[in-house]
């Protein structure tokens, strides 16, 4: 964050100037190189996650993303321990492997025992994340790692978007573009698969294949998102824009588009806010914006709380007029 403060030191004064700074987007910040890199990273990630998150939310698997996000963390630490460095690609692979193991365990337990999915997720999430913390404390207490800088490891828990570098943006692109491409190529199949799995099977769409695809693209995004938003909050990048979009659109393609756009917009605004105010971490700021948009949508959307209220009032009025 302090990197930013250098660029924006003159702009951070007090809460009172919030609205002013807000209304006239600060050109100094917008045109600063660091801001552009961070913004590009978060926006691409949020756009892709927003689109692909609609699959897991509509398939009723939103909390699996949360569990996988937490479970990816020990993989990051192990990758660090093996590589002795914070190479984004290696940590990404570590995250993917440990997330995949967690996913396999979740499937194994929830399919073959009478434990429900909910309990399974809670157990996997906490034990994997616990393992991450154990490994992290091992590194901290172990002399073999004493000479290696490990401060960055913490960033994978809470995310530290401010440290996004060009290499990270490339990684995000390298994951986001294939994910979106897979989604586009199999759009039709995803649609039938989510809506009516039995019928999908009857016309030759293999469920296992679709689940695998879904897992691959979701996990890729989660693993890349760890550095930006952290293991704890990454799932909201998948869930929250989808919820917003479902308040507005009634067709799958529009839901995807709106989710993607709200994700992107929240990422921009969140990054901007966090670069104006010291201490506002980028990931949480983005999620704050995302959630507020979601709640607003639930309030004023066409099927939202207000619409329902007015419909009911109209109904009562009409009745009393008759």
């Amino acid at each position: 964050m302090y990197l930013f403060n250098l660029f924006t030191a003159s702009k951070i004064i007090d809460i009172g100037s919030f609205q002013l700074a807000f209304l006239s987007l600060d050109m100094d910040i917008l045109s600063s190189y660091v801001f552009m890199v961070v913004c590009a990273g978060t926006m691409i990630l949020a756009a892709a996650a927003g689109a692909i998150g609609t699959i897991s939310v509509l398939k009723g698997q939103s909390l699996i993303g949360d569990a996988i996000g937490h479970s990816a963390y020990p993989g990051v630490v192990i990758a660090f321990m093996i590589g002795m460095a914070l190479d984004p690609l290696k940590l990404f692979i570590g995250a993917i492997i440990s997330g995949a193991i967690a996913f396999a365990l979740i499937q194994l337990i929830s399919r073959h025992s009478k434990l429900n999915l909910d309990a399974t997720l809670a157990i996997i999430l906490s034990s994997f994340f616990g393992l991450g913390m154990v490994l992290k404390s091992y590194i901290q207490g172990h002399e073999a790692f004493a000479h290696v800088s490990q401060g960055g490891l913490k960033n994978y828990i809470f995310g530290q978007a401010a440290y996004i570098k060009n290499a990270d943006v490339y990684l995000i692109l390298a994951v986001a573009i294939p994910s979106i491409l897979i989604f586009i190529i199999f759009y039709k199949e995803f649609k039938v698969f989510i809506f009516d799995e039995t019928y999908a099977k009857s016309i030759g769409i293999k469920s296992n294949f679709m689940y695998a695809l879904m897992l691959v693209i979701t996990m890729g995004l989660i693993a890349t998102g760890l550095k930006v938003v952290g293991a704890i909050l990454i799932s909201s990048f998948l869930i929250v824009p989808a919820i917003t979009a479902m308040q507005w659109a009634q067709q799958f393609n529009r839901v995807i588009l709106i989710a993607s756009l709200t994700g992107m917009f929240s990422a921009f605004l969140g990054t901007y806010i966090s670069s104006i105010y010291p201490g506002m971490s980028t990931g949480p700021s983005i999620i704050l914006v995302m959630s507020l948009i979601a709640f607003l949508s639930m309030l004023i959307g066409p099927r939202g709380i207000l619409a329902k209220y007015f419909r009911r009032r109209k109904f009562i009025n009409d009745k009393s007029n008759v």
């Binding site: 509509l58 039709k188 649609k191 809506f195 009516d196 039995t198 067709q251």
Partner: peptide, 30 residues
Amino acid sequence: QAEIAYIPQSSEVNWDFPTTALDVVLMGRY
């Protein structure tokens, strides 16, 4: 399989899915 149209029990369908009637019918062409 293209020659055989199967209609599952309606309980197996995900009714929350955002799609229109026409869209669902179009799935028959897939």
